[in-house]
Design a protein around this nucleic acid. Structure first.
Lengths: 282, 282
DNA sequence: TCAGATTATGAAATAAATTTACATAAATAC
DNA sequence: GTATTTATGTAAATTTATTTCATAATCTGA
């Protein structure tokens, strides 16, 4: 764990003097990195050995080692899922915060994904006779993107963002068909029904959704890229970006499984666009 | 610059003894972090002051400061835009690579964005009478997503992924209208024409595209989230995720500009979904 | 509330690590 | 091949960090 987070977490268990040091450190960690133990002690109004004890309490070998850890925490660009945009933020500030939060959430999603399940999902996708991607609202975009990727592979693929079309399509599905349902919360009733219908018709259902949700229960395979609870406060943000990254992963897995000859297809699709483009001059 | 890269770059300009230290450091930087100047000197078979001079040569204050820099270089986890997926990668490997590349590219996009232009774009958007988002292919998804966000603000907003609709729509635009055209390359001929038509009809055109492209020339404001050249090798990946992050930023700027009363709107939209959802149990 | 125990803190001494000053060796130029 | 510059090492000085030990603060249980 990041030592800055550790200080924050354990703050309550610190003694009076330790809290003083902690406050000074948290206030400006970047300055502390270049301070000697003496100057830090002075800033915090405590003695040098107390600083030293503080460092050891945090499982470092001593003050210099502590500074090393601190430097590393800072270098990580500080992953602050929790840095919320504020009313009076400048363009510069909210831009930074949104990027930081997106990065931190992607990192989180990556850790939460089970690669053995990804592997199984890729298996299923490559063996599928027909692939359908269903999503509503922000997840419709992810489904749309998935179609855009998979159609390049020259496999039958459809995408619907209309609940009626999704229903009709899943009623017509059968063994060998793969249905991918996408929903961040996994609690959208009509979509849960769609998944259920698809299963009743023997299609394999892959869910890109919250692992414990009602939707997840209807799926054969559940992939759940988890992001921080509070990031989609007013509108979907981090969740859909994490879902898109997952689509990239599935598409990549798909092409790898299909072998190298197959990859020529991709090039063909890409080249087909050329005539509608302005040439690059360089 | 990363101090490890710096050592590599300047290696040729080092003296004989300096090279010895450099070699030891490059061989196992993680070990050096915990070594004293004496032990490093011994390992490199040179004297302590030489190590010290080596550190200063690299623009650090001395050995401890050098270790700090080194620690930070290591902490950065090494940004791997260039770690390409390999034929024989396991699910675990390609998952990691895609996440890393996405993260690195987002970081890159963040650095490339000019926040003062974002600020101007937000100005234009808040003052627009009607907002249109146009994109084709993978960028259509981004336009789709933008519509999904901006319609929540209760402003007239449309999105088209069909080139004919885009043309018709821009022919009908007029002063006060804002047209946002999205294209990674900025070289898709029909879309450049659409932008040109919109401008002729006095709409304000915001481009989310490559800064030097033909499309950029037709825009009043150009926002260009730059990603590494080779990441969209076979299909759009990093580019569209960076574009989506930019949409988040514009949408956030929009809500901030509109003030707090306005944010109730967002809550209303979100609440309206409740009845179609399964309740959470916890 | 108070004695006794425990824990926290700081002053001074010690130990460790780093830097400086200076001398010598190596490399380069003329 | 000597003069000059540059590179390196030894040893001393300085800075920095740690340990020891005494004292102060806090807590425990009658």
């Amino acid at each position: 764990m990041n030592i800055l987070e550790k200080i924050t977490n354990e703050f309550d268990s610190f003694s009076k003097s330790e809290r003083k040091v902690a406050e000074v450190i948290l206030a400006s960690p970047a300055t502390v990195i270049h301070a000697s133990i003496a100057s830090l002690a002075k800033q915090a109004n405590i003695s040098e050995p107390t600083v030293n004890r503080f460092c050891r309490r945090l499982d470092t070998k001593g003050y210099p080692d502590f500074k090393l850890h601190l430097a590393q925490s800072l270098a990580n660009g500080t992953p602050y899922v929790n840095r919320h945009v504020d009313e009076n933020d400048s363009a510069d500030e909210y831009t930074t915060k949104i990027f930081e939060s997106t990065l931190a959430n992607l990192e989180m999603a990556r850790k939460s994904l089970d690669t053995s399940l990804i592997n199984r999902a890729v298996d299923v996708l490559t063996q599928g006779r027909k692939i359908s991607f269903f999503g509503l609202g922000a997840s419709a975009i992810v489904a749309h993107d998935a179609q855009n990727k998979f159609f390049r592979f020259n496999v039958p693929v459809v995408y619907f963002d209309d609940i009626l079309m999704q229903r009709m399509s899943s009623i017509n599905s059968s063994q060998g068909d793969v249905v991918v349902v996408i929903s961040h919360t996994g609690r959208t009733k009509p979509l849960v029904e769609v998944a259920s219908i698809a299963r009743e018709n023997d299609a394999t259902v892959i869910g890109i959704t919250d692992a414990g949700s009602p939707l997840a229960k209807e799926c054969n395979i559940v992939l759940s890229p988890t992001v921080a609870e509070d990031t989609d406060l007013y509108m979907p943000m981090a969740s859909r970006i994490a879902q898109l990254a997952l689509i990239d992963i599935l598409a990549t897995g798909f092409t790898l499984r299909r072998g190298s000859k197959f990859r020529d297809n991709l090039k063909k699709v890409k080249d087909s666009l050329r005539s509608s483009r302005f040439e690059r001059k360089e």
